[in-house]
Design a protein around this nucleic acid. Structure first.
Length: 384
DNA sequence: GATCCACGGGAATACACGGATG
DNA sequence: CATCCGTGTATTCCCGTGGATC
């Protein structure tokens, strides 16, 4: 977007008199296509390790790790899409114009392990990226998919796959990755996760890239995102306030900003007030489940959450009772809902708290579940 | 007929607590 | 007093079945 365009957009925004002009810019689950703010040194470190790529070779497998909200996903998605743009000379459909080697360029694939939780799904999504046609979800064996990937790689110089969110409670581990990509001679991978590499495969330190939490950069991130998303610049004091509260976590910071904006819009305001910032901070459980995590849950899990949030009143209800209510409002059995609720609590999406036993004397104390994320944010992003 | 996996439910295990036992 | 036991409930674990698709 050039300057003239920016100015034009600003003008229309003003005349519309709206506070928010681009919700995606404020959305903590969305990574803008622009260069991530304040991570130049990390890109250098990554490019160093990817050096062989630039001679048509393959880098070693890598592990990129750091705490939540430190920008790992932003970095890796941006890295892969740029590499793809710059280095893969061929697109899936146009294999006719091959280079001298008779091979098409290196292929680049970014995957979210939350959306590919088995070997089958991982292969399927890799193949889906490599080929233009849609790959079936059923009726095909995992081995067939593997063979298909192999034959696809036979005509390429190599493949670099980045797998985001490895090593979470429900996702594949680094060790799994190693096994999954073992069969492919010309494939290298980058695992991205939160846990420290101690005790994991890939013992060599040169294969690790540590992403530290943000510190002062967080204010810049909020300012940049705010500039894109809001019709007026984000007040520096507000940005600072959110950044201090978020303690280096960009997800929580953006989530708070998003809710602040929502709050102001609902009040018919055209600028953020101090109270909106307060409301934003108030609504986000620090260190809770990220929106990305919640929004990549299966359809039924999200439906259960949505229904749970809509249940009327009664803030003291056992999981058993909650499951019963949710089951009534969906086509799932209460047994299934109950299992899902327990599972969601185990992965940190829901939080379990003891419920004061209503007169019950015998047996183990029941607990209840409450969302470990901002319900407002989830409802808003889920329903859209 | 083959494939994968979400659902559903039952078995196994954990926990709470009162009372019996050592 | 400490530990075990019995009973009842909560929670976790596990796996067979069937739907959807090729």
């Amino acid at each position: 977007m050039d300057l003239a365009e920016r100015i034009a957009r600003r003008r229309t925004r003003r005349t519309e008199n709206r506070l928010v002009v681009d919700w995606d810019a404020l959305n903590p689950a969305v990574h803008p296509p622009q260069d991530p703010v304040g991570r130049e040194a990390l890109f250098e470190a990554l490019l160093d390790r990817l050096d062989p790529l630039f001679d048509g070779g393959l880098p070693r497998n890598m592990y990129v790790w750091g705490p939540r909200g430190s920008g790992k996903s932003a970095i890796v998605t941006h890295l892969l899409s740029t590499l793809k743009q710059e280095l893969s000379s061929q697109r899936p459909l146009y294999t006719a114009t091959r280079g001298e080697s008779g091979l098409s360029g290196t292929r680049f694939v970014y995957l979210d392990a939350r959306r590919a939780t088995s070997r089958f799904q991982l292969y399927r999504q890799v193949l889906d990226e490599l080929r233009a046609e849609t790959i079936p979800r059923r009726g095909v064996s995992t081995d067939e998919l593997r063979d298909a990937i192999e034959s696809e790689l036979a005509t390429a110089e190599g493949m670099l796959v980045a797998v985001d969110h490895v090593g979470e409670p429900d996702t594949v581990t680094l060790r799994d990755l190693q096994g999954f990509f073992e069969p492919f001679e010309t494939a290298a991978w980058i695992g991205v996760g939160r846990t420290s590499p101690d005790g994991l495969p890939l013992p060599m330190p040169e294969r690790h890239v540590h992403v530290p939490p943000y510190s002062y950069e967080l204010v810049d991130i909020l300012t940049v995102r705010g500039t894109r998303g809001l019709s007026r610049a984000l007040d520096h004091v507000h940005a600072q306030r959110i950044a201090d509260w978020a303690d280096g976590d960009a997800h929580d910071a953006l989530a708070a900003l998003f809710i602040a904006a929502l709050n102001a819009e609902e009040a018919g305001e055209t600028r953020l007030r101090d109270t909106d910032i307060d409301a934003g901070i108030e609504a986000v459980p620090p260190g809770g489940a990220t929106l990305g995590q919640v929004l990549t849950l299966s359809e039924n899990e999200q439906r259960v959450l949505r229904t749970l949030l809509d249940l009327p009143g009664d803030d003291e209800r056992s999981i058993d009772a909650e499951a019963e209510r949710v089951a009534e409002r969906t086509d799932l059995t209460s047994a299934t809902v109950k299992r899902l609720l327990y599972e969601l609590a185990q992965t940190g999406v829901l939080q379990r708290t003891e419920v004061s036993s209503g007169g019950q004397v015998v047996g183990r104390q029941p607990s209840m579940v409450t969302p470990n994320f901002s319900p407002t944010l989830f409802e808003r992003l889920h329903d859209q």
